[in-house]
Simulated scan of single mutants.
Amino acid sequence: MSLFVDIRKKLKGFSLNVSFETNGDYLGVLGSSGSGKSMTLKCIAGIETPDEGLIILNGKVLFDSKKKINLKPQERNIGYLFQNYALFPNMTVEKNIGIGLKGSKYEKNRKINEIIEAFHLQGLEKKYPRQLSGGQQQRVALARCIIYKPDVLMLDEPFSALDTYLKEKLQTEVLELLRLYKGEVLMVTHSRDEAYRFCENIVVIEKGSSILIGNTKETFKNPKLKKVAILTGCKNISKCRVISKNKVYILDWDITLELEKEIEEDIKYIGIRAHNFEIVKNGDEQNIIECKINKIVEDVFEYNIIFENKSSKLQGENKTILYKVKKDEWNKIDNKENLYLKISEDKLLFLK
């Protein structure tokens, strides 16, 4: 299984310029709203036409601007789960699933009944979309995609319409259901949690351009680019100045870090995730910040500690830093007025 995409298309406000290749693993297309993620899927599906480029699925050319090849959507064998599921409101569940199926009436009914059982939709066959919950509608739409055995299955923000409780429950269900499908899977999302949970690899799209493609877990561990670090949820990012091979000054936090590893000269930013500080008893070690706490915001299971470097003379909003700590860990600290946090070298993100 493989999908090759290298396309360009001028749009209002920006140009789409996306290039990536898959190898059969689930691929997440991660980016902020309006970055061009859904447009990329529509070009692959044949709903939209790129201005130029090439799209090849399992060796079959779907689009080639130079050779003037542009297969119709129905010729591409692509399953597309739309954001709003796009079920036909005047059709029952079984008719929605089976619409367009070819073969004898017996064969079509057999396939529909098999997938209804696999997707736990028994008892809903005669119901209409308006009579279904959001999760049931999603399962019907997914069953309709998979029954045709497409070469690639594309999911466009599949959980965006669901509330938080339903979302987590359905993500687990959908992961199970996708095991029934053996082809390529592309999932568009702006949720880093969904990308991390579902996708082996991700391509990051920013303002119409694919700026990074790589293994999902490795990308979260080492995003390399400031834009990617932000999309993967890093809250603490500051401009920096490389002083020497082993020393870097963090401008916004007014602290110099001394490191064992060599720092690349072209590093422009330093990031650290909010959970990755370490509480220490005093400031005697290297790379310690003595904290001046500005605000504590309580969440269900943790506290958000908003602080700044106590010894800094800098002014401005960018100097604040976010530390997320579990409640039981925070409650163990006796002297919260004199809080010292260590920045471990292995937790730093070096960004360009």
Results as ranks from 00 to 15, higher is better:
residue 313 K to Q: 13
residue 224 K to H: 13
residue 162 L to V: 11
residue 201 N to W: 02
residue 344 S to M: 01
residue 215 N to V: 02
residue 286 Q to S: 05
residue 96 N to L: 03
residue 149 K to Q: 15
residue 341 L to Y: 08
residue 195 A to R: 06
residue 180 L to D: 00
residue 23 N to I: 02
residue 159 F to L: 11
residue 111 K to R: 15
residue 286 Q to Y: 06
residue 202 I to E: 01
residue 300 V to K: 13
residue 308 E to Y: 08
residue 92 T to Q: 05
residue 273 R to Q: 14
residue 251 L to I: 12
residue 79 G to A: 10
residue 25 D to N: 12
residue 179 R to F: 01
residue 159 F to S: 11
residue 265 E to K: 14
residue 324 K to Q: 12
residue 174 V to K: 03
residue 10 K to V: 11
residue 221 K to W: 06
residue 241 R to P: 08
residue 172 T to A: 14
residue 22 T to S: 02
residue 40 T to A: 08
residue 344 S to N: 14
residue 43 C to G: 10
residue 185 V to C: 04
residue 167 K to Y: 07
residue 64 D to F: 09
residue 68 K to Q: 14
residue 83 Q to R: 01
residue 300 V to C: 00
residue 80 Y to H: 03
residue 303 Y to E: 09
residue 276 N to G: 11
residue 85 Y to F: 15
residue 317 E to C: 07
residue 297 V to H: 10
residue 237 I to P: 07
residue 65 S to F: 03
residue 192 R to E: 13
residue 293 I to Q: 04
residue 309 N to F: 09
residue 200 E to L: 03
residue 324 K to L: 10
residue 287 N to C: 10
residue 335 N to D: 15
residue 257 L to C: 06
residue 75 E to K: 13
residue 268 K to I: 12
residue 225 L to W: 04
residue 314 L to G: 07
residue 11 L to H: 11
residue 165 Y to V: 12
residue 274 A to I: 00
residue 260 E to A: 00
residue 305 I to D: 05
residue 297 V to R: 13
residue 105 K to Y: 03
residue 119 F to E: 07
residue 154 M to C: 05
residue 284 D to S: 14
residue 207 K to S: 12
residue 147 I to S: 03
residue 244 S to C: 11
residue 159 F to H: 07
residue 169 K to P: 01
residue 200 E to G: 03
residue 119 F to T: 08
residue 149 K to G: 08
residue 65 S to D: 07
residue 134 G to H: 04
residue 143 A to F: 04
residue 272 I to F: 04
residue 208 G to V: 09
residue 47 I to W: 01
residue 352 K to N: 14
residue 212 L to T: 08
residue 127 K to I: 02
residue 240 C to L: 02
residue 337 E to T: 12
residue 34 G to M: 01
residue 108 K to D: 00
residue 334 D to G: 00
residue 333 I to E: 06
residue 171 Q to E: 13
residue 5 V to T: 10
residue 175 L to Y: 03
residue 165 Y to T: 14
residue 165 Y to N: 15
residue 287 N to S: 13
residue 6 D to L: 02
residue 28 G to R: 01
residue 2 S to A: 08
residue 304 N to S: 15
residue 107 E to F: 13
residue 38 S to V: 04
residue 128 Y to A: 13
residue 99 I to N: 07
residue 256 T to W: 06
residue 173 E to M: 08
residue 48 E to H: 08
residue 178 L to S: 01
residue 33 S to R: 02
residue 147 I to W: 03
residue 124 L to W: 06
residue 180 L to S: 12
residue 16 L to W: 02
residue 177 L to H: 02
residue 333 I to V: 15
residue 209 S to Q: 11
residue 227 K to V: 11
residue 183 G to M: 03
residue 349 L to N: 10
residue 116 I to K: 07
residue 144 R to H: 05
residue 311 S to G: 00
residue 113 N to C: 02
residue 259 L to Q: 08
residue 258 E to R: 12
residue 47 I to Y: 06
residue 344 S to L: 14
residue 313 K to V: 06
residue 177 L to Y: 05
residue 95 K to Y: 09
residue 29 V to C: 05
residue 223 P to S: 00
residue 36 G to S: 08
residue 309 N to V: 09
residue 185 V to T: 06
residue 297 V to W: 00
residue 102 K to M: 10
